[in-house]
């Protein structure tokens, strides 16, 4: 299981924390971003192109700031970030990670037709209501009840020890130990 995962990971060199690339292979990054966009469901060339341009601009900015890291990874990250940014603005969310995640699942689940055009800025039709409607609630609002462990008093638990302790107390042994101690 997951051999493909290991192979894909093995193919990349993870960047060090301080490493940065000021220049990068733009075509390779575009290819990767385009592939990722296709996986997200962006199939029209016009949409893909519009989103690619935005992603590349963000990459160039990162490169200029020396925070690019591994370029292919950065390309995927930027597409992902673009999607999140659009969802936040479309839904008017205030960086609520749970709501954002639910919205992402709704659009990527294929339940909101036309969302890719809207994301690419090629459609003027607002989709906030449809995205909200497509979100599936995993759990209802909390309605907590107290549930404390009940008390179960076992009979005869450590009876031998308790009896010895009682006899000891009767004989005054405990007092002696306590005083000697």
């Amino acid at each position: 299981m997951g051999e493909g995962v290991a192979a894909s990971l093995a193919a990349i060199d993870l960047p060090g924390a301080a490493s940065g690339h000021s220049a990068f292979d733009r075509r390779a990054a575009e290819r990767r971003a385009r592939g990722y966009l296709r996986a997200l469901g962006v199939s029209r060339e016009s949409e893909s192109q519009a989103l690619l341009e935005q992603a590349m601009k963000r990459m160039e900015l990162r490169a200029a700031l020396g925070r690019l890291g591994e370029p292919l990874e950065a390309a995927v990250e930027e597409v992902h970030a673009l999607l999140d940014q659009w969802l936040l603005s479309e839904l008017g969310l205030n960086a609520d990670p749970d709501a954002l995640s639910a919205a992402r699942a709704a659009v990527l689940g294929g339940d909101v037709p036309g969302w890719t055009a809207r994301w690419a800025g090629l459609s003027g039709e607002p989709l906030a209501e449809r995205i909200r409607a497509a979100r599936v609630t995993a759990v209802p609002e909390p309605a907590p009840l107290q549930m404390e462990p009940s008390r179960i008093e076992l009979c005869c638990y450590r009876l031998g020890l308790r009896l010895i302790a009682k006899i000891g107390r009767l004989l005054g042994l405990r007092g002696k130990r306590a005083s000697s101690g």
Binding site: G4, S8, I12, Y36
Partner: peptide, 12 residues
């Protein structure tokens, strides 16, 4: 993101 940035492009 790391899987998607590997040499072999994963896909559905």
């Amino acid at each position: 993101t790391r899987l998607w940035s590997g040499t072999d492009l994963p896909g559905p």
